[in-house]
Write a protein that binds this DNA or RNA. Structure first.
Length: 548
RNA sequence: GCCCCCGUAGCUCAGGGGAUAGAGCGUCGCCCUCCGGAGGCGAAAGCGCAGGUUCGAAUCCUGCCGGGGGCACCA
């Protein structure tokens, strides 16, 4: 008896009641079934009676009584109580609950996948760091959270494309090139240039590359140096992200938008939509029409196009490539950008609320983190990963909602105890593996003797109910774009598992104790927990070690 | 001035209108003849303030207070 089966059962009970004339109400398309906070309130509960009461013109408790009476007849349900203002508290049979262990093990790791977002075509843009320097801790947060979100969206059935927008056009590229060129000649970088020591490294790489080509490095011009340095820096970004376990489907170059004429075409397309006007020698987009606080320039009075124009072209590219939903993950310092972005969508004739979603990430600080002189006094991704470990960094950053500012405690993240959430969850997984290994050595087999009615311990019903929540957690995480829900869920699952482990033995105590169906059935439950812990960690891009 | 985010236990943070607001750390106490104590059990301790909507508000709305960030023909 899983929450979705219960939900269906409640719906059919409601439908029967309506058909028999006992009830006059519209049966909701989906009935939410929740785990009550208090175990005294049963395995599952629903407030459907409270919600329908008004429309049905029946007191909530009466309606609840009516549903409870019919629901109690459903096979697999032990009892249904009406509580408080009209909650339905449901207790399910051990056997019906325990079947889930079999289902999960037989699903082969697909348990949790669902169709909450099937049919959704999503473009997920994240990180999108300038290719003029290394990745910092803010980018690291996006990399961890964005990648986890991508995995969660896929698990919920969405068709996801992960995209990195490379800002390889514009004045900052020339400042970048000039900085590298200066370093090649042993000069100081210009005041408005890039000062980190990585620029010196890039200068060396460019020099080596030029010499390998048989060219005189000292004669190389700004453009050539800029483009070689850009390529080297982009390679590094791709490598660092790949090492972090974050892969993109598309690396989208801003420059190609300019070179292909897409930017100019975008201005014309928006003009055709009637939202473009000329003033003071510049070309403007009337974004104020759609809530922006001022209109924005597309083409400057000197004829050059703005970054904003490229953004409009980029938006249209996403639209043309068939993405209905475009998710942008931006730093808090870019929030002012949201209105403009939505205005572009509106000017293009789309519904901005539907087609654009912007997730704003608040600041991350790591207590005691050293600034990277190499990277220009930032906290650099690769330093943090080398320091704290990939799993700890990924998990810690994915465990908080994007809009929550976070402070990470390095001492905690490197501890090997339940102080440290990532170890707590990984350890639970390792423990499941250990239990299985030892049980198999003891001759406990899972291909026979599975009898879920034996899973009667309180800790077993809690563990089973927690396992039952997983698909709903994944669906919710995808719908709300909140992958941290998966992490929080895993922590509660690990806790339920440890409590069960403490109370219920999977293996015989010693060689004299015979192996029984209870051992075999519990081993199946142990396996089911292992599968869900592993899948959950995988959704976060964190490894699930078999031993620690 | 305008806009966005945040304010929950001593600390770091969860809580998509529901029942007695949770977790870890820290403090105090308990459990090792027991599959890994890298674990478990328990105690004390909290929704910034004031209104409103609702049968019901930490959650939604308004105002105030406090903290962070943003308001270019930069990228």
């Amino acid at each position: 008896m899983t929450p979705d089966k219960l939900s269906q059962a409640i719906r059919s009970v409601l439908t029967e009641a309506v058909e028999s004339g006992e009830l006059t109400a519209a049966v909701p398309g989906e009935v939410r079934v929740e785990r009550p906070r208090n175990r005294q309130h049963g395995d599952w509960s629903t407030n459907v009676a409270l919600q329908l009461a008004k429309a049905a013109g029946v007191p909530p408790r009466d309606l609840a009584q009516l549903v409870a009476k019919r629901l109690a007849e459903v096979p697999g349900i032990t009892s249904v109580d009406v509580a408080g203002p009209g909650f339905l508290n449901i207790v399910v049979d051990a056997a019906a609950a325990g079947e889930l262990a079999r289902t999960i093990v037989e699903s082969g790791g697909r348990y949790g996948d669902n169709d909450a977002l099937s049919g959704h075509v999503v473009n997920l843009e994240f990180v999108s760091a300038n290719p003029t320097g290394p990745l910092h801790i803010g980018h690291t947060r996006w990399a961890a959270l964005g990648d986890a979100l991508g995995r969660v969206l896929s698990a919920a059935g969405a068709d996801v494309t992960r995209e990195f927008y490379v800002n390889d056009a514009g004045a900052q590229m020339d400042r970048f090139g000039a900085s590298v060129l200066a370093r090649m000649h042993g000069d100081d970088v210009p005041e408005d240039g890039y000062h980190g020591e990585y620029v010196v490294e890039l200068a060396q790489k460019v020099r080596a590359e030029l010499e390998a080509r048989g060219e005189d490095a000292d004669l190389a011009g700004l453009e050539e140096v800029r483009d070689l340095a850009y390529q080297a820096q982009l390679d590094e970004l791709q490598q660092v992200l790949a090492d972090f376990g974050v892969l993109f489907d598309v690396w989208f170059s801003e420059r190609t938008l300019h070179d292909s004429g897409a930017v100019t075409q975008a201005v014309e397309r928006l003009r055709e939509q009637g939202h473009v006007y000329d003033s003071e020698g510049a070309v403007w987009l009337r974004t104020t029409e759609f809530g922006d606080d001022r209109d924005r320039v597309l083409v400057r009075s000197d004829g050059s196009t703005t970054y904003f124009a490229a953004d409009a072209a980029y938006y249209l590219s996403k639209k043309d490539r068939g993405f209905d939903e475009k998710v942008y993950m931006l730093g808090a310092d870019h929030h002012g950008y949201v209105g403009r972005l939505k205005a572009i969508a509106a000017c293009a004739g789309d519904d901005p609320e539907r087609s654009i979603e912007v997730l704003i990430g608040q600041l991350v600080t790591i207590s005691g983190a050293r600034l990277s002189k190499r990277a220009g006094n930032i906290v650099e991704l690769r330093d943090v990963v080398a320091w704290l470990g990939r799993d700890a960094v990924r998990y810690s950053l994915a465990r908080y909602p994007a809009d929550s500012p976070i402070t990470l405690d390095p001492d905690l993240l490197t501890k090997r105890s339940n102080d440290n959430p990532v170890f707590y969850v990984q350890y639970a997984h390792a423990r499941t593996c250990n239990v299985t290994r030892l049980a198999l050595e003891d001759g406990v087999r899972t291909d026979e003797g599975f009898d879920p009615s034996l899973l009667t311990d309180e800790t077993e019903s809690v563990l089973l109910a927690t396992l039952g929540e997983f698909p709903g957690v994944v669906a919710t995480a995808a719908e709300l774009r909140e992958p941290h829900r998966v992490a929080r869920y895993l922590e509660s699952l690990a806790a339920a598992y440890h409590k069960w482990y403490d109370t219920c033995r999977v293996r015989p105590m010693d060689a004299d104790e015979p192996v029984t169906d209870l051992h075999r059935t519990r081993l199946r439950l142990n396996e089911a927990t292992r599968v869900v812990l592993a899948r959950g960690l995988d959704l976060l891009g964190v490894s699930a070690p078999e031993r620690m």
